[in-house]
Design a protein around this nucleic acid. Structure first.
Lengths: 193, 193
DNA sequence: CGTCTATTTGAATGTACTCAAAAGCGGTGG
DNA sequence: CCACCGCTTTTGAGTACATTCAAATAGACG
């Protein structure tokens, strides 16, 4: 699915508006393990995944990774706090496979919104949806055990579970990689009866 | 601070736009313990706090409360997922003190955004900020111990800690009320040396 | 095939929870 | 104004869940 038809799930665009949007899109390919954003760095853009797999995470002072978000085909990802406040990033955005992306710069978006207010609407709807989603995640993680969190996540995002290494899933779900291994073993035991 | 001057921290409004916004504001007073939103109910609006204290929470099947958000003066609160998808709420929004609020209906907002696109921009910026905030919260809760979560929260929102009962703070921070009591006792012990 | 990274497994430890009981506090009515 | 009742907080003991560390195994990639 193209980024334009993705946008048109929220709003409809004239020919001219489509063209205007396309001019601010920067297509790019990143190899596995490569970074699109690094802490402190000046990459103020949102990233749209055409195909491949990205994730965002941060490092604690002790060196532990904490995954914030996964992004497969047709998802947006970035250090959003850094993006909207236009300040240095605190997250990494990293390719977990070879990935084709579109980068959309902050200044370009703001300019586009001024020229074509229809995009103001689009980015409002996207931000609202993202917020609702983020609240839902926070909610899902409160009051569930590690096993329940994993089961919930697996049924909602089976393709993510299959595509990312387990230690990343563990760091997203808020448990150690070792423990997730034990959780999955226990689940498998139940299924086999 | 009035709701209009609050809005004008993001965008500037003409006299006419201010009037238009004011016509969709519904002022209301709720008493302590009263609900503004209840699960399943048809109250599709965002709530702005003039003065007082609200919170949103949900109940697990086992009857445990989980606090999602606190709202003091000049904050917005609602079951946001329900608001944007226009579906029945799953959260309670409850007054923790006698509180003056302004209710802003979904349909009225959408209509206003069509007539005055400047509000499209306002609600985009608010949604983006809310999303960034929500991500920051998720991030803060990953990888911190219960004690660290409380200390972090206390330094960032001392007025919330003073104004809401402890069991609500505990249910926001993801720990039992008893354990928060023990955490605070231990912290006090350290401070007194 | 060898190296490096990721996963599995086990034992010991620790953090946070549950349950139960007591103490504190605030509001209400006599 | 005081006494009582209900709700919140505190405290302690026992328990469960999840972590850490270490070692062994499995898998991926050049």
């Amino acid at each position: 699915m193209s980024i334009i038809s993705n946008i048109e799930r929220y709003i409809s665009l004239t020919e001219k508006e489509q063209k205007a949007f396309e001019t601010i899109c920067e297509k790019r390919v990143v190899e596995k393990h490569e970074f699109l954003v690094e802490p402190g760095q000046n990459c103020y853009c949102q990233i749209y995944v055409i195909n491949g797999a990205l994730r965002s995470y941060f490092l604690t002072p002790e060196g532990e990774e904490h995954t914030i978000q996964f992004a497969l085909e047709d998802w947006f990802i970035s250090d959003f706090n850094s993006y909207i406040t236009q300040s240095p990033a605190s997250l990494y955005v990293q390719a977990c496979e070879r990935t084709e992306v579109i980068e959309i710069g902050y200044l370009e978006v703001e300019q586009l919104c001024i020229e074509y207010p229809v995009f103001e609407r689009f980015f409002r709807l996207v931000a609202q949806k993202a917020f609702a989603f983020s609240q839902k995640r926070a909610l899902a993680n409160l009051g569930l055990s590690a096993t329940e969190r994993f089961l919930e996540f697996e049924t909602q995002y089976p393709n993510i579970v299959n595509r990312y290494p387990q230690y990343m899933l563990a760091s997203y779900l808020g448990m150690s990689a070792e423990f997730l291994s034990k959780v999955r073993k226990k689940i498998k035991g139940f299924e086999e009866r």
